[in-house]
């Protein structure tokens, strides 16, 4: 297989306000102030600022897998939103291969979105069918 237990990968996703606004308007039609307005999120929502939609965080983690394993197919992705991930922050999307099934051609991957403080507001796991080398 193209992947081994313990392989690690990461990328820096773009969670800037313009990108989140594009996600909430063009991609999903869920243009709520808690995602797109820092001030209202603080004043009305009691949040530290506008937050990245959970489904965008999950989409970022799926993209991280595809960047690491192009051509692979995600069979299952499970994400837990433990704390707000802030818009305009600089998180890192990380993955670690934690199980490889040679017979099935699948890998299990730990996924995290880590913020600048080293905390993990989003974590999850995925089962991926790994593309075989031609």
């Amino acid at each position: 297989m193209m992947v081994e237990f313990g392989d690690e990968f990461e990328f820096q996703p773009d969670v800037s306000m313009p990108t989140v606004k594009s996600f909430t308007t063009e991609a999903t039609r869920m243009d709520f102030w808690r995602f797109t307005d820092h001030e209202k999120a603080r004043e009305l929502g009691g949040l530290p600022g506008a937050i990245v939609p959970g489904i965008m965080s999950q989409g970022i983690l799926a993209a991280a897998i595809h960047r690491f394993l192009p051509g692979s197919t995600i069979r299952k992705i499970d994400t837990i939103f433990r704390a707000p991930l802030l818009v305009d922050s600089s998180p890192t999307a990380r993955g670690v291969v934690t199980h490889v099934d040679e017979e099935e051609g699948t890998a299990e991957i730990d996924l995290t979105l880590v913020n600048e403080a080293g905390e993990t507001p989003v974590l999850g796991t995925a089962v991926v069918e790994v593309a075989r080398a031609e």
């Binding site: 313990g6 934690t98 199980h99 299990e108």
Partner: peptide
């Protein structure tokens, strides 16, 4: 209910790292 790790994978991880 919120655990996602196989025990065998914990063992492999400890040894690998």
């Amino acid at each position: 209910d919120d655990g996602r790790a196989r025990v065998e994978s914990y063992c492999q991880w400890i040894r690998k790292k």
